[in-house]
Design a protein around this nucleic acid. Structure first.
Lengths: 154, 154
DNA sequence: ACAGAAGTGGGGAATAGTGGGGAATTTTGG
DNA sequence: CCAAAATTCCCCACTATTCCCCACTTCTGT
Protein backbone atom coordinates (compact mmCIF):
# COMPACT_ATOMS: atom_id res chain seq x y z
CA UNK A 1 0.00 0.00 0.00
CA UNK A 2 1.56 3.29 -1.05
CA UNK A 3 2.54 5.79 1.59
CA UNK A 4 1.37 9.34 1.67
CA UNK A 5 4.27 11.60 0.83
CA UNK A 6 5.11 15.16 -0.06
CA UNK A 7 4.30 18.56 1.35
CA UNK A 8 1.56 20.84 0.06
CA UNK A 9 0.62 24.32 1.17
CA UNK A 10 -2.90 25.63 0.70
CA UNK A 11 -4.80 28.62 1.86
CA UNK A 12 -7.71 28.37 4.27
CA UNK A 13 -10.62 30.63 3.38
CA UNK A 14 -12.67 32.53 5.90
CA UNK A 15 -15.11 29.64 6.16
CA UNK A 16 -12.39 27.29 7.32
CA UNK A 17 -12.18 25.40 4.04
CA UNK A 18 -8.95 24.01 2.56
CA UNK A 19 -8.39 22.24 -0.71
CA UNK A 20 -7.31 18.67 -0.23
CA UNK A 21 -4.08 18.32 -2.26
CA UNK A 22 -4.74 16.48 -5.50
CA UNK A 23 -1.58 14.42 -5.30
CA UNK A 24 -2.54 13.08 -1.92
CA UNK A 25 -6.03 12.32 -3.07
CA UNK A 26 -4.60 10.09 -5.75
CA UNK A 27 -2.93 8.03 -3.06
CA UNK A 28 -6.10 7.53 -1.06
CA UNK A 29 -7.67 4.13 -1.37
CA UNK A 30 -10.73 4.68 -3.59
CA UNK A 31 -12.93 2.69 -1.27
CA UNK A 32 -12.28 5.24 1.48
CA UNK A 33 -12.59 8.20 -0.84
CA UNK A 34 -14.14 11.25 0.71
CA UNK A 35 -14.38 9.85 4.23
CA UNK A 36 -11.76 10.97 6.70
CA UNK A 37 -11.15 11.26 10.39
CA UNK A 38 -9.40 14.34 11.68
CA UNK A 39 -8.00 14.68 15.18
CA UNK A 40 -5.45 16.35 17.37
CA UNK A 41 -1.94 15.10 16.72
CA UNK A 42 0.65 14.38 19.34
CA UNK A 43 2.71 17.15 17.86
CA UNK A 44 0.99 20.55 17.57
CA UNK A 45 -0.65 19.56 14.32
CA UNK A 46 -3.65 17.60 13.10
CA UNK A 47 -3.75 14.01 11.92
CA UNK A 48 -5.94 13.11 9.01
CA UNK A 49 -6.74 9.47 8.30
CA UNK A 50 -8.70 8.17 5.32
CA UNK A 51 -11.44 5.81 6.43
CA UNK A 52 -9.55 2.62 5.64
CA UNK A 53 -6.46 3.68 7.57
CA UNK A 54 -8.48 4.95 10.47
CA UNK A 55 -10.02 1.55 10.89
CA UNK A 56 -6.57 0.17 11.58
CA UNK A 57 -6.10 2.77 14.27
CA UNK A 58 -9.41 1.81 15.82
CA UNK A 59 -8.37 -1.81 15.84
CA UNK A 60 -5.29 -0.85 17.73
CA UNK A 61 -7.32 1.20 20.16
CA UNK A 62 -9.76 -1.60 20.80
CA UNK A 63 -6.89 -3.85 21.76
CA UNK A 64 -6.01 -1.51 24.59
CA UNK A 65 -6.97 -2.77 27.99
CA UNK A 66 -9.73 -0.45 29.08
CA UNK A 67 -9.73 -1.85 32.58
CA UNK A 68 -6.52 0.00 33.32
CA UNK A 69 -6.50 3.64 34.16
CA UNK A 70 -3.81 4.35 31.59
CA UNK A 71 -5.74 2.56 28.93
CA UNK A 72 -8.88 4.51 29.58
CA UNK A 73 -7.00 7.78 29.64
CA UNK A 74 -5.36 7.09 26.30
CA UNK A 75 -8.61 6.12 24.65
CA UNK A 76 -10.50 9.09 26.02
CA UNK A 77 -7.82 11.63 25.14
CA UNK A 78 -7.40 10.25 21.70
CA UNK A 79 -10.99 10.08 20.61
CA UNK A 80 -12.17 13.15 22.39
CA UNK A 81 -11.03 15.58 19.73
CA UNK A 82 -11.59 13.41 16.70
CA UNK A 83 -14.14 14.18 14.01
CA UNK A 84 -15.33 12.50 10.86
CA UNK A 85 -15.20 14.71 7.78
CA UNK A 86 -15.99 14.47 4.11
CA UNK A 87 -14.81 16.44 1.13
CA UNK A 88 -17.19 18.84 -0.54
CA UNK A 89 -17.78 18.85 -4.28
CA UNK A 90 -14.65 20.97 -4.80
CA UNK A 91 -12.53 18.50 -2.84
CA UNK A 92 -12.20 20.68 0.22
CA UNK A 93 -12.18 19.87 3.90
CA UNK A 94 -13.74 22.22 6.34
CA UNK A 95 -11.73 22.33 9.50
CA UNK A 96 -13.63 22.50 12.79
CA UNK A 97 -12.70 25.66 14.64
CA UNK A 98 -11.53 23.89 17.80
CA UNK A 99 -8.98 21.96 15.74
CA UNK A 100 -7.82 25.09 13.99
CA UNK A 101 -7.30 26.59 17.40
CA UNK A 102 -5.33 23.65 18.71
CA UNK A 103 -3.04 23.51 15.72
CA UNK A 104 -2.63 27.25 15.29
CA UNK A 105 -3.90 27.09 11.72
CA UNK A 106 -5.55 30.26 10.49
CA UNK A 107 -5.10 31.31 6.88
CA UNK A 108 -2.57 28.73 5.67
CA UNK A 109 -2.37 24.99 6.14
CA UNK A 110 0.51 22.70 5.22
CA UNK A 111 -0.28 19.09 4.41
CA UNK A 112 2.49 16.58 4.97
CA UNK A 113 2.17 13.02 3.76
CA UNK A 114 3.44 10.82 6.58
CA UNK A 115 3.00 7.19 5.65
CA UNK A 116 -0.42 5.97 6.64
CA UNK A 117 -1.72 9.36 7.67
CA UNK A 118 -1.56 13.00 6.64
CA UNK A 119 -0.45 15.71 9.00
CA UNK A 120 -1.77 19.26 8.78
CA UNK A 121 0.40 22.01 10.23
CA UNK A 122 0.35 25.75 10.59
CA UNK A 123 3.44 27.35 9.03
CA UNK A 124 4.54 28.74 12.37
CA UNK A 125 4.35 25.51 14.34
CA UNK A 126 6.07 23.67 11.54
CA UNK A 127 8.98 26.10 11.55
CA UNK A 128 9.38 25.59 15.28
CA UNK A 129 9.42 21.84 14.87
CA UNK A 130 11.97 22.13 12.08
CA UNK A 131 14.32 24.25 14.08
CA UNK A 132 14.33 21.61 16.79
CA UNK A 133 15.56 19.05 14.30
CA UNK A 134 19.31 19.26 13.89
CA UNK A 135 21.02 18.25 10.69
CA UNK A 136 23.06 15.58 12.42
CA UNK A 137 19.98 14.02 13.89
CA UNK A 138 18.34 14.06 10.51
CA UNK A 139 21.30 12.37 8.89
CA UNK A 140 21.30 9.72 11.55
CA UNK A 141 17.63 9.02 10.96
CA UNK A 142 18.17 9.01 7.25
CA UNK A 143 20.90 6.45 7.36
CA UNK A 144 18.82 4.26 9.58
CA UNK A 145 16.22 4.04 6.91
CA UNK A 146 18.27 4.18 3.76
CA UNK A 147 21.12 2.21 5.25
CA UNK A 148 21.83 -1.26 3.96
CA UNK A 149 18.58 -1.61 2.19
CA UNK A 150 19.94 -3.69 -0.65
CA UNK A 151 20.44 -7.26 0.44
CA UNK A 152 23.82 -8.49 -0.49
CA UNK A 153 23.04 -11.85 -1.90
CA UNK A 154 25.38 -12.87 -4.67
CA UNK B 1 19.55 -6.84 -10.51
CA UNK B 2 21.75 -4.45 -12.49
CA UNK B 3 23.18 -1.36 -10.82
CA UNK B 4 22.74 2.10 -12.22
CA UNK B 5 26.01 3.50 -13.42
CA UNK B 6 27.44 6.32 -15.47
CA UNK B 7 26.98 10.07 -15.61
CA UNK B 8 24.71 11.98 -17.98
CA UNK B 9 24.21 15.71 -18.36
CA UNK B 10 20.96 17.14 -19.69
CA UNK B 11 19.40 20.54 -19.94
CA UNK B 12 16.36 21.53 -17.94
CA UNK B 13 13.83 23.60 -19.85
CA UNK B 14 11.93 26.52 -18.41
CA UNK B 15 9.13 24.24 -17.27
CA UNK B 16 11.49 22.17 -15.17
CA UNK B 17 11.58 19.19 -17.50
CA UNK B 18 14.66 17.00 -18.06
CA UNK B 19 15.15 14.08 -20.37
CA UNK B 20 15.69 10.85 -18.52
CA UNK B 21 18.96 9.39 -19.88
CA UNK B 22 18.23 6.57 -22.26
CA UNK B 23 21.02 4.38 -20.98
CA UNK B 24 19.68 4.54 -17.47
CA UNK B 25 16.19 3.81 -18.63
CA UNK B 26 17.40 0.57 -20.12
CA UNK B 27 18.57 -0.49 -16.68
CA UNK B 28 15.25 0.18 -15.01
CA UNK B 29 13.18 -2.86 -14.23
CA UNK B 30 10.44 -2.85 -16.88
CA UNK B 31 7.75 -3.49 -14.32
CA UNK B 32 8.62 -0.18 -12.64
CA UNK B 33 9.00 1.65 -15.91
CA UNK B 34 7.84 5.23 -15.85
CA UNK B 35 7.13 5.34 -12.13
CA UNK B 36 9.69 6.95 -9.89
CA UNK B 37 10.05 8.56 -6.52
CA UNK B 38 12.22 11.64 -6.22
CA UNK B 39 13.39 13.10 -2.93
CA UNK B 40 15.99 15.22 -1.21
CA UNK B 41 19.31 13.49 -0.80
CA UNK B 42 21.65 13.83 2.12
CA UNK B 43 24.11 15.59 -0.10
CA UNK B 44 22.79 18.68 -1.90
CA UNK B 45 21.35 16.55 -4.66
CA UNK B 46 18.23 14.54 -5.39
CA UNK B 47 17.71 10.81 -5.16
CA UNK B 48 15.60 9.09 -7.77
CA UNK B 49 14.26 5.60 -7.16
CA UNK B 50 12.36 3.50 -9.68
CA UNK B 51 9.14 2.17 -8.24
CA UNK B 52 10.45 -1.30 -7.50
CA UNK B 53 13.44 0.01 -5.58
CA UNK B 54 11.38 2.56 -3.73
CA UNK B 55 9.08 -0.14 -2.46
CA UNK B 56 12.00 -1.61 -0.56
CA UNK B 57 12.49 1.74 1.13
CA UNK B 58 8.82 1.93 2.02
CA UNK B 59 8.90 -1.53 3.49
CA UNK B 60 11.60 -0.36 5.77
CA UNK B 61 9.64 2.74 6.67
CA UNK B 62 6.46 0.86 7.40
CA UNK B 63 8.23 -1.22 9.99
CA UNK B 64 8.86 1.92 12.02
CA UNK B 65 6.57 2.37 14.97
CA UNK B 66 4.55 5.50 14.34
CA UNK B 67 3.35 5.57 17.92
CA UNK B 68 6.76 6.70 19.11
CA UNK B 69 7.92 10.27 18.77
CA UNK B 70 11.19 9.30 17.12
CA UNK B 71 9.42 7.04 14.69
CA UNK B 72 7.09 9.79 13.63
CA UNK B 73 9.95 12.23 13.19
CA UNK B 74 11.75 9.79 10.94
CA UNK B 75 8.72 9.17 8.79
CA UNK B 76 7.80 12.82 8.51
CA UNK B 77 11.28 14.07 7.74
CA UNK B 78 11.75 11.41 5.20
CA UNK B 79 8.55 11.49 3.24
CA UNK B 80 8.06 15.20 3.44
CA UNK B 81 10.27 16.07 0.52
CA UNK B 82 9.49 13.04 -1.58
CA UNK B 83 7.32 13.01 -4.69
CA UNK B 84 6.10 10.40 -7.09
CA UNK B 85 6.84 11.21 -10.71
CA UNK B 86 6.24 9.64 -14.06
CA UNK B 87 7.89 10.12 -17.41
CA UNK B 88 5.99 11.94 -20.11
CA UNK B 89 5.70 10.68 -23.67
CA UNK B 90 9.15 12.12 -24.45
CA UNK B 91 10.68 10.31 -21.49
CA UNK B 92 11.12 13.40 -19.40
CA UNK B 93 10.78 14.04 -15.70
CA UNK B 94 9.42 17.32 -14.51
CA UNK B 95 11.22 18.40 -11.39
CA UNK B 96 9.14 20.04 -8.67
CA UNK B 97 10.41 23.54 -8.00
CA UNK B 98 11.09 22.96 -4.30
CA UNK B 99 13.44 20.14 -5.21
CA UNK B 100 15.16 22.25 -7.83
CA UNK B 101 15.65 24.86 -5.17
CA UNK B 102 17.08 22.44 -2.66
CA UNK B 103 19.52 20.91 -5.10
CA UNK B 104 20.48 24.15 -6.83
CA UNK B 105 19.44 22.76 -10.19
CA UNK B 106 18.32 25.37 -12.69
CA UNK B 107 19.17 24.91 -16.35
CA UNK B 108 21.38 21.81 -16.22
CA UNK B 109 21.04 18.52 -14.39
CA UNK B 110 23.60 15.77 -14.06
CA UNK B 111 22.34 12.23 -13.57
CA UNK B 112 24.67 9.86 -11.77
CA UNK B 113 23.94 6.17 -11.60
CA UNK B 114 24.56 5.12 -8.02
CA UNK B 115 23.69 1.48 -7.54
CA UNK B 116 20.08 1.08 -6.62
CA UNK B 117 19.26 4.73 -7.08
CA UNK B 118 20.09 7.62 -9.35
CA UNK B 119 21.43 10.91 -8.08
CA UNK B 120 20.65 14.20 -9.77
CA UNK B 121 23.07 17.09 -9.22
CA UNK B 122 23.49 20.67 -10.29
CA UNK B 123 26.89 21.21 -11.96
CA UNK B 124 27.89 23.71 -9.32
CA UNK B 125 27.13 21.55 -6.30
CA UNK B 126 28.81 18.61 -7.93
CA UNK B 127 31.99 20.60 -8.51
CA UNK B 128 32.02 21.63 -4.87
CA UNK B 129 31.59 18.06 -3.77
CA UNK B 130 34.39 16.99 -6.09
CA UNK B 131 36.79 19.61 -4.88
CA UNK B 132 36.20 18.54 -1.30
CA UNK B 133 37.29 15.07 -2.24
CA UNK B 134 41.02 14.71 -2.66
CA UNK B 135 42.42 11.66 -4.39
CA UNK B 136 44.13 10.46 -1.25
CA UNK B 137 40.96 10.76 0.75
CA UNK B 138 39.03 8.92 -1.93
CA UNK B 139 41.52 6.07 -1.90
CA UNK B 140 41.28 5.88 1.84
CA UNK B 141 37.50 5.79 1.76
CA UNK B 142 37.56 3.19 -0.95
CA UNK B 143 39.66 0.88 1.12
CA UNK B 144 37.55 1.39 4.20
CA UNK B 145 34.34 0.69 2.41
CA UNK B 146 35.41 -2.04 0.06
CA UNK B 147 38.01 -3.64 2.26
CA UNK B 148 35.88 -5.51 4.72
CA UNK B 149 32.45 -5.00 3.28
CA UNK B 150 31.55 -8.66 2.99
CA UNK B 151 30.45 -10.58 6.03
CA UNK B 152 30.31 -7.61 8.30
CA UNK B 153 27.31 -8.12 10.46
CA UNK B 154 26.40 -4.86 12.04
C1' DA C 1 24.99 9.42 -45.64
C1' DC C 2 20.90 7.71 -43.90
C1' DA C 3 17.50 6.00 -40.61
C1' DG C 4 16.05 5.69 -36.17
C1' DA C 5 16.41 7.00 -31.63
C1' DA C 6 17.28 10.60 -28.18
C1' DG C 7 16.97 15.24 -26.67
C1' DT C 8 14.73 20.02 -26.76
C1' DG C 9 11.13 23.45 -26.98
C1' DG C 10 6.54 25.47 -27.09
C1' DG C 11 1.22 25.71 -27.45
C1' DG C 12 -3.23 24.22 -25.89
C1' DA C 13 -6.46 21.39 -23.21
C1' DA C 14 -7.69 19.70 -18.88
C1' DT C 15 -7.37 19.75 -13.94
C1' DA C 16 -6.50 21.95 -9.47
C1' DG C 17 -6.97 25.81 -6.34
C1' DT C 18 -9.53 29.89 -4.68
C1' DG C 19 -13.31 32.85 -3.52
C1' DG C 20 -18.05 34.26 -3.06
C1' DG C 21 -23.35 34.03 -3.31
C1' DG C 22 -27.44 31.76 -2.05
C1' DA C 23 -30.46 27.80 -0.60
C1' DA C 24 -31.39 24.53 2.93
C1' DT C 25 -30.90 22.91 7.53
C1' DT C 26 -30.04 23.47 12.38
C1' DT C 27 -29.95 26.23 16.54
C1' DT C 28 -31.64 29.65 19.71
C1' DG C 29 -34.85 32.63 21.98
C1' DG C 30 -39.41 34.31 22.55
C1' DC D 1 -44.44 26.02 18.48
C1' DC D 2 -42.83 29.54 15.63
C1' DA D 3 -39.61 32.88 13.92
C1' DA D 4 -35.06 34.90 13.57
C1' DA D 5 -30.31 33.92 13.37
C1' DA D 6 -26.54 31.29 12.38
C1' DT D 7 -24.32 27.64 10.24
C1' DT D 8 -23.59 24.30 6.73
C1' DC D 9 -23.45 22.91 2.24
C1' DC D 10 -23.77 23.26 -2.67
C1' DC D 11 -23.18 25.64 -6.79
C1' DC D 12 -20.95 28.89 -9.96
C1' DA D 13 -17.05 31.49 -11.74
C1' DC D 14 -12.29 32.88 -12.25
C1' DT D 15 -7.31 31.90 -12.17
C1' DA D 16 -3.17 29.31 -12.09
C1' DT D 17 -0.87 25.29 -12.79
C1' DT D 18 -0.05 20.83 -14.71
C1' DC D 19 -0.09 17.64 -18.17
C1' DC D 20 -0.31 16.09 -22.93
C1' DC D 21 0.56 16.47 -27.60
C1' DC D 22 3.07 18.07 -31.72
C1' DA D 23 7.14 19.57 -34.13
C1' DC D 24 11.92 20.28 -34.67
C1' DT D 25 16.93 19.35 -33.82
C1' DT D 26 20.78 16.59 -32.54
C1' DC D 27 23.09 12.43 -31.93
C1' DT D 28 24.26 7.39 -32.80
C1' DG D 29 24.95 3.30 -35.19
C1' DT D 30 25.10 0.97 -39.62
Amino acid sequence: MPSFKGQYEHSVDNKGRVAFPAKLRKLVNPEAQDHYTLLRGLEPCLYLYPKDRWEQVENKLSSINSFSMKGRTVIRSFLRYAEDLSLDKQNRLSLPSHLMGYSGIDSTAIFIGAGDRIEIWSPGKLDEADSDLSLEYYQELFEQVMGDEHDKGD
